[in-house]
Amino acid sequence: MEMIEKLVSRTDAAYQRWLASVTDDVDADGVYVYCRESLPERNTTYEIGEWLTGYLMIGQDGDRGFFLRCDGGGPVFRADLGGLGEVDLEVVAPAFEVWLRSGFALPSEPEPDMPLTADVYIDRFPVDGVALLMRARKLLGAYWRVGDLRGYLAAQPFLAARSAPLYALRRRLEHAPELRPYLFYATGHGLEAVWPADSPESR
């Protein structure tokens, strides 16, 4: 509780004023913004201090959390709770006060060109790419035994993650270009690249 209070004291003034004015979580069309009493349990449950040091989880929308950086100001961020790290954060609003005035509205989502979740496979990996596969294991949060990695490489394509959040995975690949050619998701007509070769960022 003391740690949460310390983090709250370092957030921007508009958030602190709002927090002092509410006694229950606020439900804004499925976006829940926590009252002060909910903050310790929510931040502890999702181990926010471990994955996002210096951030406070202030709300939730299903499996996505909303965060403030505890440095006196800055944007409201959003990230999938299954893939927490600073590289996974996206800006929802430039400041808490702006988000509050909007009624906690969310930015419009891009038209999906792939499902929200799907089984992810690894394919076309170099057969001697054990070190690279270790990086893929970390990116996917998988728990493959090191002794099994050569067997996986020999059995490609192999299932790497079930029902993975594809948009979060694509965002992580922005910072891992060496893994982009090898991650695919299952569709009704075979495997599709998580990071298409014709993506502008690939050029």
Rank of each mutant, 00 (worst) to 15 (best):
Y167E: 12
F104C: 00
W99P: 01
Q60F: 06
A176W: 09
A105D: 10
G129A: 15
D113P: 06
R162T: 12
K138A: 15
D61H: 14
G54M: 00
A160L: 05
D119V: 12
A118T: 04
G62L: 10
L166S: 03
L173A: 01
M57I: 04
G74T: 09
D123L: 02
R135I: 12
A79Q: 02
F96N: 00
E111W: 09
E90F: 07
A168N: 05
D88F: 07
D113V: 13
L116S: 15
H175V: 11
P110F: 08
R124D: 15
L100G: 05
R78V: 11
R171E: 12
A93P: 07
S163G: 11
V98K: 08
Y121L: 03
L159D: 08
L116D: 15
A93W: 00
L89Q: 07
K138R: 15
D128T: 15
W144T: 08
R64W: 13
R69W: 08
D80S: 13
T53I: 06
A142P: 09
D63P: 13
A93E: 01
A131D: 10
D123V: 04
W51A: 04
L153D: 07
P115M: 02
L56S: 03
F67G: 02
A160V: 06
T117W: 03
A142M: 06
L89R: 10
G83W: 06
A161C: 15
V127A: 14
A142V: 09
V127W: 15
Y55R: 00
L89S: 07
L139Q: 04
R69C: 10
R69H: 13
L169A: 04
R170K: 13
Q60H: 08
C70P: 04
L89F: 09
E86D: 11
A95V: 05
L68S: 08
P110Y: 09
G151F: 03
L133K: 02
G72S: 00
L81I: 12
T117N: 05
W51K: 06
R172P: 03
R171P: 12
G73I: 02
